[in-house]
Nucleic acid binder design. Structure first.
Lengths: 242, 242
DNA sequence: GATGCGTCTTATGTATGACATAATGCAATA
DNA sequence: TATTGCATTATGTCATACATAAGACGCATC
């Protein structure tokens, strides 16, 4: 029996290996919450915090720096630190470096795209304005009509689907898409996805636009699912279609 | 005419106000990418970086601390800093403090939930194992059968829908849901959402489970949309139903 | 020869003091 | 009144010193 097994059995409380900065960081976050601070409020100066928490300014600064990194505060000279409403997605952007992400996560992200695009059909259908539809029509204008001929052009693909996200009117969703884009491209480029030939029942971009104009939310949602079918089939062979 | 107006006219390029730490941070990230570093690789020691970049150790440390905050690296004594595949969602967790998020973002997040749950129907349908269905049945067992009587119990709601995320088999999606949970709760608690009475066509959790057992992916997806309809109606009055 | 133990070395973690720099308020001045 | 200039304040950067944990290494023990 190894020592680690023993520690499980004996329920030895694991020693607190977190650094001072870690502790101060969480203390500060708790402070924000308990004090019900909202964006615009100021938090104590560095020197006050050093006195309050009994640690050096170095530690305080490193902790504040972390809050700054996750967008919870903003600092300026003379004024000090001010609470901010963080842009959730801005964060992801920095850490999302496709080459560093592991395969499983990349796969998840690609799947997430499919999930979002099907799910947002209702938003799109409701919020599409005539002008949006015109733009979509302009984008798909050059596409050949026969399904067989449709080549897979990633830039074109992104233009069309990107516009859909825009129409959804959900800023968080849009940000999310734009952040995940590098991951999508990476998945395509690295040939993790092979798009098989689509069959005659396949729904093209043009078809989607038509349904958006004349169909119902339900029809549109199901059409979107069909449109994405080749991706479901292509990589995620474990997903039943239709 | 104010000075700021003038600067616009004269097209004076705004001075770079970013701090040294900001610059070092992006330099380091570029380094990671250009050097094609992957998880497990070591990056130069703090002292080497101070020499390479010509700044003090303080600045280097603050920049490294940021990379650590976004999960790109991990540090340990004696070994130095090591590249990590960041858990994208872990990050969000810290910054997602509902009371600090602005209303618009909270609304977006709630909407995102609806989008994801409809969109992931296909994954659920394909990946649900007999055991999963049993669990779902256990969860909905206590529910009254008549739609009229169904009370809105948020914990029950979370148990059922949480299980659905689990079934989806997409780890990123699951993490996402668990992170967004506080925001969901907040939206419910703060009564930003009012659930209207559901009509006779409403789909209950029990109905969903039945369709999951005996239906098709298409039916399940559309049923999920109907199930969530009260939320679409409740808060997002600008969304057409069905 | 393998295992265990103590010591040394190394790189990060923390503390302290100093000065630079930007933002703000206020007083002096034209 | 408007503008300039100075003092103040709090963050940003630098330098140095020491604490601490994790490996590396050698040595003794079996």
């Amino acid at each position: 029996m190894s020592i680690s097994d023993k520690s499980q059995d004996l329920n030895i409380s694991s020693v607190d290996s977190s650094s001072l900065v870690d502790k101060v960081e969480s203390t500060l976050i708790e402070l924000l919450i308990s004090q019900k601070l909202t964006p615009g409020d100021l938090i104590p100066k560095e020197m006050e915090l050093t006195k309050m928490l009994g640690v050096s300014r170095t530690v305080i600064r490193e902790a504040l720096n972390r809050l700054k990194t996750i967008g919870l505060i903003e600092t300026s000279k003379r004024k000090g630190s001010i609470i901010k409403s963080p842009n959730l997605l801005f964060l992801l952007q920095k850490s999302l470096i496709p080459s560093i992400l592991d395969h499983a996560t990349l796969k998840d992200i690609f799947e997430l795209r499919l999930v979002m695009e099907i799910g947002m059909s209702d938003l799109i259908f409701r919020r599409a304005k005539p002008k949006d539809i015109e733009e979509l029509e302009a984008i798909v204008k050059e596409e050949p009509t026969s399904a067989k001929e449709v080549l897979f052009d990633i830039d074109h693909e992104i233009a069309f689907h990107g516009k859909l996200y825009e129409i959804s009117g959900n800023q968080t969703l849009m940000d999310f898409q734009s952040i995940l884009l590098p991951a999508f491209r990476y998945v395509y480029d690295s040939e993790m996805i092979k798009s098989p030939e689509h069959d005659s029942k396949w729904i093209s971009h043009k078809d989607l636009v038509q349904i958006l104009k004349n169909g119902t939310p339900n029809k549109f949602r199901n059409a979107m699912r069909k449109h994405l079918d080749r991706h479901f089939k292509g990589h995620f062979k474990d997903i039943k279609t239709t």
